[in-house]
Every structure is written in structure tokens, then in C-alpha cells.
Amino acid sequence: MIELLPLLLQGTWITIKVTLLGSLVAIACALLAALGRISPIAPLRWLAIVYIEVFRGSSLLVQLFWLYFVLPMPPFNIQLSAFAVAVIGLGLNIGAYGAEVLRGAIRAVPRGQAEACHALNLSPMTRFGRIILPQALLAAIPPGTNLLIELLKNTSLVSLITLSDLAFRARQLNQATLMTLEIFGLALLIYFVLAQLINLGMRLLERRLARGRMRGGLS
């Protein structure tokens, strides 16, 4: 069984890279789309709604295939590597879900916070950037953690556009060795461990950001 590990770990490294970069793209997309969604400028709002609904509503694998097979063709002629498609596709997809999470978190910040900003004459930019958003981001961490784990799990689909991630290597080894149970069992275990690492990391982040603050007090 030990001979399986090197290839699986190579795949794991790709999985980790796609997860990390995809998360960054997802967070950026979520932030932009959430801002657009609550913007007073109507066209920005529509743009954000279309982005969110399209990427949540059409299937992720369809999106990956679209980026991988359709984009290089006319009229687009944009050739992206499988790795770039993976990062961009996963980021856009999870970002659309993240935008809704973030919007909910922004709306959940107590009204009194905005009123206090108003009474202190803070500008709308300061109000949002320094007071509302930091509180919303903290509240968005638990649902955001679930989305990052979704993203990790979804990275397995990039094996279907030829990227040699963990799922790809597992499939490849399976065809070569027929040690079916061991290979897929190990792969599942690795994904499980990665998911727990995300969980742990986010919990540490939350604790660090929430230092000095207890939940449930008047605020």
C-alpha cells in the first residue's frame, strides 16, 4: 500500500494548491458581488444578481466544462490551462454562494451600529469599511467554513478536465493496480483530513478575530 502514496501525495499537492487559490478567488468574488448586491447603483445590483444566480443555478461541472471546452473556441478564443480553469471556475462558483452568505451577514449587523456611525458623523465609506464589514466578516466565518469545505470537495471535479489532482491520481492508480479499496479509501481519508484542517484553521482565525469579544452581549 505504501507504494501508492507518492502519486497520491503529488495529487494532494495539486488539490491543496487549487483549494487555496480557488478560495482566494472565491473570497474576492464574494466580496465584490455582495457589495454589488447591496449597492445603491441599480446596474451594479443587477450585474451582481445575474452573476450570483447563474453561478449558483447552473451546475459546477457544466461551468468547468464551459470554461475548458467552449472558451478556447470562437468567438472567445481564450485558451486557459486546466489549472487556471480549475481555480477560476471553482472560485467563481463558490464566490456566488459566498456573496449570499456575506450579504446575510452584512444585513445581520445590528441597526444600532449604523445609527451610532450616523450620530458620530462617520462617512458612508468609513461606516461600511471600518464598522459594518469587520463585524459581518466575523459572523460569516462559520458559514464560510462550510463553503470552503465544499470548495475542497469540488476540487475533485477538476480531475475530469485532466488536471492531475488527488482524484485524478486515485483513478489513474486504480486502473494500473486494481487495489481499488485501498486507493479510494486513502483518497477519501486525505480529503477528510484536509477538510478537518480547514475547519481547524477557520476556528483559529475566528478566535483570533473575536479576541476580547463574547457573543450574545449587547452591542
Binding site: 475533485s156 471535479l157 482524484a167 486515485a170 481499488t180 479509501g185 477519501l188 480529503y191 477538510a195 478537518q196
Partner: peptide, 15 residues
């Protein structure tokens, strides 16, 4: 819940 559907499908289909 914390592992991919794809690999689970492989398990059902190949294992």
C-alpha cells in the same frame, strides 16, 4: 459530508 461525491461514486462503482 466532508469527502467528495466523486470519490464516493468511484467506491460504489469500482469497489
Amino acid at each position: 459530508r466532508s469527502t467528495p461525491l466523486l470519490i464516493q461514486l468511484y467506491v460504489v462503482f469500482y469497489v
